[in-house]
Design a protein around this nucleic acid. Structure first.
Lengths: 338, 338
DNA sequence: CTTGCTTTCCGAAACGTTTCGGGTATAAAA
DNA sequence: TTTTATACCCGAAACGTTTCGGAAAGCAAG
């Protein structure tokens, strides 16, 4: 591959001049610039990004750090959609984009700082970390800018983009109550996940503001997994026939509940109303279609990417951004007739 | 961030020795190696990959080139799954992985060669290119190793991994015929896509080997899109009530056909048997569930990644690999009762 | 003629590695 | 004692850029 030196030799100008010509500096004569340009094109020159990054000490690449990238996450298209958003935004901004996948165990081998340093990442957007993952703290304390999706944390070089989690979750529970439901269960996900805690808070607060006593037995744990949710829903529904509605912290778990109802011969929504969270692709294809709180991961990805390069560029921008969720009404909920 | 020079200064050994110690050369004393190791750890040293790549002239990174990475592709989880496969395999092999997304129009701005050279990619795995995309030819002729998924092309530094496309497609059509269907339509995708041509060939060959006359009117074009497929299926089904089965070149188009039947008040599979191709996630959730030819993109991703690094490493490996498809029997097909 | 300003160019150092070709002890062999 | 082998270490060049600090030439002003 042609290098600066080749162009220099072929055009008769020094390496310095060639570099300056190609980079649009103005202390180079129009004629020589044209000459250099044409020679460069002829030789098929294109700059070696590695060398450039080495001396400029910035790589023009952003990392997209994601935990537990595995085949199963296919069901949860959230990650893929934010990835698309990040990718689109970065390519518009002329940044590269490397995918960093990690697991909780891998984080012990290599520190977050090392990971960034090795690759000279200018910034990173992070998705899906757990609250107690070592990388979370490291990322916040690190000098390299990062923005988190769905984990509100502020810091010098840290930003986040999230949705109106609490409000939209409250809206979902209020919706059930307005339809006459009183015995409403809550299917929680991994307790350490940030999103779990706020969805749980929403549930509790709305119940309280409607003077419905909290019943700890109504709070289940499905660990954000379909089968786990089914397994825990089966005995619960059997033992609590008075429950007419359930709010799930994720659609995937809602699907599990749906399976449980089928096995028990219950009808949805007549016997049990279900509302999920995420608006995954499947939610509009299952039968009955799933009422759910829709997130917009693509937009979140775009905003996260945009914010991180703004921080990298030293622009003085707000370090938080919101993308509004939306309650999407479908077939899995109906009025309480009991 | 700590550099080799820092470790050198702090440990009292030369940069050369430090480098050699850290890289496991054997001409360094055990004691000094230990000393250097501990100093390096203390300083949190980790090598600058950029600098290393620059001198070694290989970056230990593989590109994953994908066309038309857009939100819509979410429905077609094929890409995402191969991505997971590639990612998993490469991380096991200690290679980096950058995602390169391109569109047909973007390919005019920057040549494939430039793209590889800039980033010093050691190799690339390519997915979803169209037969007439400029990058395809460039990739084959390029010196940097590449392996294509689902496009059989051989060359010095080129390999591919594909599935037994033709056989499995034939199997699907034979299945319909064995169930007594004679008037079988074919929903084709983008005519320029490689997969389209082979699925079409399979259809024609099986029809012929069963002495069923080819009827050009039975070949539709749904452009691999749900709505396009629906729009073309609607009038077709209306005008050809004798057709009892349809073989679709993709599940997404099969879903379109399914919609069309609903609008026409036809029952699947009683009035029309449908078989798709791809086994996308949705196919097991729609009602009726979709009989389809299942691909295994995750395995293809893994094999592709493994093959490309083998080629990079100069190993003498076969430049083709196969992952067998499988006909998955579900509800959307039944015996012809007419 | 000297001074100073523009315009246009370039040499050399720097970024953080790897690696080639030695060099200097110490120990073993002659 | 001198030679040879071995074990350990290091200087310097190289990879392909960018950029700092000038330098040469031309020209206007004093």
């Amino acid at each position: 591959m042609a290098t600066l030196k080749d162009v220099s030799r072929a055009s008769g100008f020094s390496i310095t001049t060639v570099s300056r010509a190609l980079n649009g500096y103005d202390d180079v004569n129009k004629e020589t610039r044209d000459k250099i340009m044409s020679v460069a094109k002829e030789l098929g020159y294109s700059p070696n990004i590695l060398a450039r990054s080495l001396v400029k000490k910035q790589s023009k690449t952003i990392g997209f750090l994601v935990t537990d990238l595995k085949r199963e996450s296919v069901k949860d298209n959230f990650m893929f959609e934010t990835l698309c958003g990040v990718s689109d935004e970065l390519s518009e901004l002329d940044y590269e984009f490397v995918l960093l996948s990690t697991t909780t165990s891998k984080q012990k081998n290599k520190t977050y700082g090392q990971m960034c340093a090795e690759r000279q990442l200018d910034g990173v957007v992070i998705q899906g970390l757990k609250r107690d993952d070592p990388y979370l703290l490291e990322a916040i304390e690190s000098k390299v800018p990062c923005v988190l999706v769905d984990i509100p944390v502020e810091g010098e070089n840290t930003g986040y983009v999230t949705s109106n989690q609490l409000d939209s979750a409250k809206q979902a529970v209020r919706y059930l109550i307005r339809l006459g439901h009183r015995h409403i269960a809550f299917m929680n996900g991994a307790p350490h996940a940030y999103v779990s805690t706020v969805r749980y808070d929403a549930y509790r607060q709305v119940m309280q503001e409607n003077d419905i006593d909290a019943n700890d037995a109504y709070v289940l744990n499905g660990d954000f997994e379909e089968t786990a949710a089914k397994d825990v829903a089966l005995p619960f529904l059997l033992n609590h026939p008075e429950v007419t509605a359930i709010f799930c912290a994720s659609d995937v778990m809602a699907l599990g509940v749906l399976q449980a109802t089928r096995e028990l011969g219950l009808n949805v929504p007549e016997d049990l109303s279900i509302v999920g969270f995420d608006n995954i692709l499947l939610s509009q294809y299952v039968s009955p279609t799933l009422t759910t709180v829709g997130q917009r991961p693509y937009e979140m990805g775009r905003k996260a990417a945009a914010m991180v390069v703004d921080i990298v560029d030293g622009k003085d921008v707000p370090h938080e951004a919101f993308v509004n969720n939306q309650l999407i009404l479908r077939e899995s909920v109906t009025k309480n007739r009991r």
